[in-house]
């Protein structure tokens, strides 16, 4: 149960965003990131933030979940904000206290950078993890990279590895907890002592964990062989990815957004973000 909160970030749904083609979602997410970096002033940021709110509405996901996903970022956000507020020199001095001076530009810059980080994280998680299953994502990636297979890059193998890794992360986490409990029951102590002692205390966990992972890998290999797996060649897929009008709409909106950002950047006045 615990693990599901940390890893099963996919939120079941049938929204516009859920139904988009994962390949397009990947492409558009990259596009969107570029747009976010193109934003230079407060107007463009406002526009992109509005579009992000539109995305949340399209995903039909409870905004609380998205806000919660930003929690781990609080530290990073605070640190960047503080650095910007205290270090950036500008024209309008607000106040100074000994060696520290705070400028209005510093505050605006800090604000914009925080908005940028929040936009980056929320848009990518929204498009890629919350509304796309990991397997659809690896499928999408595999197909997008398919041309690279022509130059002998192991695209299928890579995506199969990703799939299996995703499948086994929760299993191995569970296993780790079991082994830790078993060794704790034999008096192992993982939380006190010097760094060296703690590192040593990990041995009774890591060795059984590795052995079990290898055993699983071996069994899985046999199971896959029994299920007639012989590599990517000649394989078909149950779920063929289809592009739909949704992806076209997505593309058009993103292109328009990009154009708008470029134009506003060029003609609108106001403070420009640095960094």
């Amino acid at each position: 149960m615990k693990n599901s909160v940390a890893f099963g970030q996919y939120c079941e749904g049938k929204s516009f965003l859920h139904k988009m083609d994962p390949r397009w979602k990947l492409v558009l997410a990259v596009f969107y990131i570029v747009v976010i970096f193109l934003c230079k002033n407060i107007f463009t940021f406002a526009l992109v933030a509005l579009s992000a709110i539109g995305l949340v509405a399209l995903s039909e996901i409870n905004p609380k979940i998205i806000i919660r996903s930003l929690k781990p970022l609080v530290m990073i956000i605070c640190v960047t904000a503080i650095i910007n507020i205290f270090w950036l020199k500008g024209e309008t001095l607000l106040f100074s206290f000994g060696p520290i001076s705070v400028y209005l530009e510093g505050i605006i810059n800090a604000f914009l950078i925080v908005v940028r980080v929040i936009l980056l994280v929320s848009v990518t998680t929204l498009m890629l993890t919350y509304t796309t299953t990991p397997i659809a994502l690896t499928d999408g990636l595999e197909q997008l990279l398919a041309p690279l297979a022509k130059i002998k890059l192991p695209v299928h193998e890579f995506s199969m590895m990703m799939t299996i890794a995703l499948r086994f992360i929760p299993t191995l986490l569970e296993e780790t907890e079991k082994i830790m409990n078993a060794q704790r029951a034999r008096g192992a102590d993982f939380s006190t002592g010097s760094l060296k002692q703690r590192a040593k205390a990990l041995v009774p966990i890591l060795i059984p964990l590795f052995i079990s992972a290898f055993r699983r890998a071996e069994e899985l290999a046999i199971a896959m062989e029994c299920r007639c797996y012989t590599g990517g060649e000649g394989r078909t897929r149950m779920n063929v990815l289809h592009s739909s009008y949704r992806d076209l709409v997505g593309l058009i909106v993103t292109v328009l957004l990009c154009l708008a950002v470029v134009l506003i950047n060029k003609f609108a006045p106001g403070y420009r973000i640095s960094m």
Partner: peptide, 24 residues
């Protein structure tokens, strides 16, 4: 645990057929 390949039930059931090259 050690024989299921996919994270989603129906994807795993499909795995063998996909290997055989059965049409979608």
């Amino acid at each position: 645990d050690n024989q299921l390949v996919a994270t989603i039930v129906e994807e795993d059931v499909a795995f063998g057929c996909e290997n055989l090259g059965v049409p979608s």
